[in-house]
Design a binder for these strands. Structure first.
Lengths: 165, 165
DNA sequence: TATTGTTATACTCTATAACTATA
DNA sequence: TATAGTTATAGAGTATAACAATA
């Protein structure tokens, strides 16, 4: 019924008369809200991911995009935006950055002059490989936490991602 | 091995020769990354929450804060920041906003002149009650999706939130 | 008319660092 | 010295709306 988040639980209780100390916080309804813990978990995971990769030169949003282009040479920006679950307007600047440092290349597509096909450059492939190592290590950490219930967790998260909204 | 996110799966295939269409996107390693789906699920949940409440006058970050103050009258900003898993510097502006529209009140605490105790005003309690209805409806939607596995999902998310980082 | 991609703009969440006033 | 709170600043993620080019 009473809980504290993260490391704060172990901090000392100041023992003030009328003040609520860390140790006795009531989360109330929040405690059973999936949305609340989804935010906490995602935030923690994001921070850990940045720590694992950010020391180098990765920007957090890049990995999924590079990975999708690497796995789908010729993919268009619009398909990319759908696959990554973001609006197309958020893809443009990422692609611009990746182009600027020559990790990806664009090529016009014969059938449709509005669009273009994306692919990784050799440097992009190298970078993706390096990032993948970091990402794999990161996800291994998550895997260790969820133990044998990873498949179920993924299934639930996928369902939430797909069916809500 | 092949998957598409969200509603894009049902969009028409343009049938262009060299282009990757929505229907055939390979997520690759991403498909088994907890972090990837954590982001998608959290984002979907967040959008749905905004849709449920945002029509009114709620700002997304407010609910958790109001809820924590409501459940812990006299709580201090620093305890609030720990309970909500955010840095103290992110709490200040939220409290300022909530003060400005008179949903919360502050009172000095006898033992420590650096800090102060927070509580909901009558208007704050009313607002929290109204928001709680929206939030409950939102979480009920999530509950329906996860069915009988809510307890396990919460346990896993809590563990990720607490032990990563 | 609808779609692809870009741009402009804005909002939210979050953090770090430097500061003050206390403790 | 260490902690509570504030401020300034910055960065990531995301979205909407309006636009040009093309379908």
């Amino acid at each position: 019924m009473s809980e504290t988040i993260g490391k704060a639980a172990s901090s000392a209780d100041a023992g003030n008369a009328g003040t609520i100390s860390d140790r006795e916080i009531h989360l109330g309804p929040l405690e059973n809200y999936i949305g609340f813990y989804l935010r906490l978990a995602q935030n923690a995971s994001f921070k850990a991911f940045k720590r694992h990769t950010g020391e180098g030169d990765l920007r957090p949003g890049w990995f999924a995009i590079l990975s999708l282009i690497g796995g789908n040479p010729g993919i268009t920006p619009i398909a990319l935006s759908r696959a990554s679950g973001r609006d197309k307007s958020t893809i443009t600047p990422v692609l611009r950055d990746l182009m600027r440092i020559h990790l990806i290349a664009r090529e016009s597509v014969p059938g449709d002059r509005r669009s273009y096909a994306l692919s990784l450059t050799p440097a992009g492939k190298e970078k993706l490989a390096r990032l993948s190592e970091h990402a794999a290590r990161h996800d291994a950490e998550l895997d260790a936490l969820v133990g044998g219930r990873k498949a179920e967790l993924l299934a639930l998260l996928r369902r939430i991602a797909a069916e809500i909204d």
